[in-house]
Write a protein that binds this DNA or RNA. Structure first.
Length: 416
DNA sequence: CGTCCACAGGAATGACGGGCGG
DNA sequence: CCGCCCGTCATTCCTGTGGACG
């Protein structure tokens, strides 16, 4: 078989080159450090807010706002884990449950997850939401605890499912005799209140905390702390550290982003056999991360979404101008015909286009062409070559890349 | 100034695979 | 095994609309 020397080389290089990583885990964003620099105030305030539970009282419901990577989740977990150990010390019957609403996905699973943390077993599916809620309530009351529910990324749940779950939760205390519930809501979206029933909102944010984005120097400190744990001494160059924090600061002060950059930069450096992480490696890392995200997104699309993208691909190439929904539908129709695939409605196509827009693969904006109607102008947001690269490996799709839609030639009645 | 195009995008309603309790 | 409910994807039907044209 083949040529073992090649692999030998790779392994050899890996083992021999200076090791950079002491502990890679530290740079993951779900790692909870012992210190959260620049969040001392928030920790203190949140700590004060939840402290009453140690004296058997319910604490206020609290809402944490802030963009991604501003430390909301970290602060909440940090405070609660300390609270938990304090509670043990005092023998206070406190329990908490952390749920990430976006990951969890639905009301049903949120309640299932809450119930499980109480030791109740809830089937994956099969029950009505009401039934799960009842079981949760009963189980909770029986457990005689003060229960703190952390609902992270709550905006994701509310935006497409409404505030029913929160309404139920805010009222649950009325039905409890031996237990109490407090809610800590975490939202990335500052406009969340607009989506909420005002009654729910006011009961939910008895207290509010806003997390400002980190600035470059704060990010720098955070990275410095973590890099001490994750890399061996002297492996990280000053300029690399600075550029990491600057890049992440430019992107709404996202610490998560900064940590990702640093970790990937480390991996790049390691692969290059460099004993030092340099500015260059960080820049490579930036491209790398972006590229990977897009490729992953492209690969995971459904066939129809891919065909929509390809339709835009063809239209943009042919006319040089932006495509409209109608044109896309025509070309998409043709591609489906070529592949012998049943086609979706135009209505459905509209939502697919919006989804692709949100993912940043397309750019669409509504424009009115007056007498000639109202539509969306759609443009590809990613390079054509990337589409060719990713879709080219699929036999059917690569045929559709080469295919020249007939409609393009006769469909040249473009005004203005 | 009203008309009317070419859609946008909300609401209601299936169809369907998965999974439950009984 | 049946009847039921879940969540997801899709269709059907629908009302809404910015602005160039006449």
């Amino acid at each position: 078989m083949g040529n073992p020397n090649i692999l030998d080389d790779v392994f050899e290089k890996f083992v021999n080159c200076a090791k950079l990583f002491k502990d890679r885990e530290v740079l993951r964003h779900d790692y909870l450090p012992e210190k959260l620099p620049h969040r001392e105030d928030q920790i203190r305030v949140l700590g004060q807010a939840v402290a009453p539970v140690l004296k058997d009282a319910r604490c206020s419901n609290i809402f944490l706002y802030g963009k991604t990577g501003t430390g909301k989740t970290a602060v909440a977990k940090f405070v609660l884990s300390h609270l938990e150990s304090k509670a043990k010390e005092y023998g206070a019957p406190v329990k908490f449950c952390y749920v990430n609403c976006r990951m969890t996905g639905s009301e049903y699973r949120v309640f299932a997850s809450l119930s499980q943390s109480l030791g109740l077993s809830i089937p994956f599916t099969g029950l009505s939401v009401g039934e799960v809620f009842d079981r949760f309530r009963n189980g909770l009351d029986a457990s005689r605890t003060i229960f703190i529910v952390v609902l992270d990324e709550i905006d994701a749940l509310i935006k497409d499912r409404g505030d029913g779950i929160l309404y139920e939760l805010t009222r649950i205390n009325e039905a409890l005799h031996k237990s109490k519930v407090s809610i800590i809501g975490i939202s990335n979206d500052l406009r969340l209140k607009e989506f909420l029933d005002p009654r729910v909102f006011s009961s939910l944010s008895e207290e509010e905390m806003v997390f400002r984005p980190y600035d470059a120097s704060e990010l720098r400190n955070i990275l410095l702390e973590r890099s001490k744990l994750s890399f061996y001494d002297g492996c990280l160059s000053e300029p690399a550290l600075s550029i990491c924090s600057a890049l992440a600061a430019a992107e709404h002060g996202d610490a998560r982003r900064a940590l990702d950059l640093l970790r990937v930069a480390g991996e790049v450096a390691e692969r290059n056999g460099s004993p030092l992480i340099t500015e260059e490696h960080v820049r490579d890392a930036e491209k790398h991360i972006e590229h990977n995200k897009v490729v992953e997104a492209l690969k995971n699309l459904t066939l129809h979404s891919k065909l929509v993208l390809l339709s835009v691909y063809h239209l943009n190439k042919a006319s040089g101008t932006n495509a409209t929904t109608g044109e896309i539908y025509d070309v998409y129709n043709e591609l489906c015909g070529e592949l012998g695939v049943s086609l979706l409605t135009q209505r459905r196509l509209g939502t697919l286009i919006n989804e692709l827009d949100v993912m940043g693969l397309l750019n669409s904006k509504v424009v009115s062409m007056g007498r000639y109607g109202r539509t969306k102008k759609i443009r590809l947001e990613i390079s054509r070559t990337l589409i060719q690269d990713v879709f080219g490996s699929d036999e059917r799709l690569s045929r559709m890349i080469k295919y020249e839609p007939k409609l393009l030639s006769k469909n040249t009645h473009n005004r203005h």
